[in-house]
Design a protein around this nucleic acid. Structure first.
Ligand SMILES: [Mn+2]
Ligand SMILES: [Mn+2]
Ligand SMILES: [Mn+2]
Ligand SMILES: [Mn+2]
Lengths: 218, 218
DNA sequence: TTTAATATTTAGATAAGACTAAAAATTTAT
DNA sequence: ATAAATTTTTAGTCTTATCTAAATATTAAA
């Protein structure tokens, strides 16, 4: 059974190898964990000893199947708890992450199973991120960044790439939520800002915002 | 802020000083924590340094007001979570303790507050134990042990003293739950066993059982 | 009131997880 | 191809929480 710290490292490695599925560097892990490379090396050795990662000195790291399952299990719990907090306990989507970081480490198969049932087997968390199932399968959605959407296309907001409170609060302030319909009016080539129609109101967003909102063409 | 281990020690000290409100010995703490006296001494020093207990070498230990508040806060969370698991997640009362031992350490004022509201401000956990309020006040109930009930008295089961799975499963098996009405028919002086009428069925229980069931005279 | 038994504390070790500083390997630049 | 820069690992230290063994204090017995 993995310790709390080991679980956090596994999650970090999983997220780092999500897109580019190549090996993950010690430095990348250290940076994501907000720790020093030497600490990352120490932990890498432990995870290797436990058969949770493949590792060769100086060659980087890759999750084994066991490591991937452990990581996904933690992510599953994280996202179920986030949804619980929003749907049942009146948390807003910018308040849940910190608490979920603690709750994701609670060890009880039954708890996870029953929480899943209580929430009626959800497939997405409050940020639009997919919730892995009990077997470790992660539903892959075909969402794309708002920045990629063509002019005059209509789309629906389905997720956020940046889920920091700062960004989520920005979205709240400008009445952008999951499910909100967005029409791309035009794009400014100078600064990559975009003119949008949101809820029949015209608004301009920056490149930063456009690159952190996931949408689905509708 | 207290660490997980410190919180567990505070809880142990609180429970040990609950009835006899005298000082608590190092050995008693070690025994309750299932650890060695030397480890208890180490922790006692830490808790003293943090102002959570009064302590004089060889003289035992007593919670300060801050220590009591910290202990009660953990107990509050423990009992709220136990109730949540039973009322919302289909756990039975003999399955909740272990998970609650983990959940009680989650740090989030809002989480505790909202969980309390979600459960509609309960006053008792699934074992009939009182749930302290947000200010650290513990409602003291006037329950007594079934062993003390006089012949031909009618009473209602309102709590358990021993809340181990073994005992709770015994009660389940014999259809004794919180709220069950019990009439004391007679007492055997030889072994202190008692003849009871429970749900109109006559049954004999041992001294051990009689000393671990709390009732209220009805 | 000495002695014996028990309880408590101290001393020294260990393991997990983190750190700094320094060494070694790899990658990039000249 | 060699030197410089960067990355990664190692060596040694620190903190928390635990342990065993030994020393000290307290309590009970003779
Ligand atoms: Mn999160
Ligand atoms: Mn999320
Ligand atoms: Mn409990
Ligand atoms: Mn309880």
């Amino acid at each position: 059974m993995a310790t709390l710290s080991e679980e956090n490292y596994l999650k970090a490695i999983f997220h780092l190898s999500r897109h580019d599925k190549t090996v993950v560097s010690t430095n990348a892990i250290a940076q994501k964990m907000e720790t020093k490379a030497s600490s990352a090396t120490d932990m890498i050795k432990k995870l290797f000893e436990k058969g949770l990662i493949d590792y060769e000195k100086y060659k980087g790291v890759k999750l084994t199947e066991n490591g991937r399952l452990a990581a996904v299990s933690v992510i599953r719990k994280h996202r179920l708890w986030e949804l619980f907090l929003v749907d049942k306990l009146r948390f807003s989507w910018d308040e849940v992450h910190e608490v979920a970081e603690q709750l994701e480490h609670i060890k009880s198969k039954k708890l996870t199973r029953e929480l899943d049932a209580f929430l009626e087997f959800p497939t997405e968390d409050p940020h639009g991120d997919p919730i892995p199932d009990a077997n470790g399968n992660m539903p892959s959605s075909q969402k794309l960044l708002l920045a990629k959407v063509k002019q005059l296309q209509r789309c629906i907001c389905v997720g956020v790439k940046d889920s920091t409170p700062k960004f989520l609060q920005y979205l709240d302030k400008h009445k952008i939520a999951l499910g909100t319909e967005i029409t791309v009016l035009s794009r400014e080539s100078y600064d990559e800002s975009m003119a949008l129609k949101i809820n029949n109101i015209q608004r301009t967003i920056s490149k930063e915002v456009a690159h952190n909102l996931f949408v689905k063409i509708s």
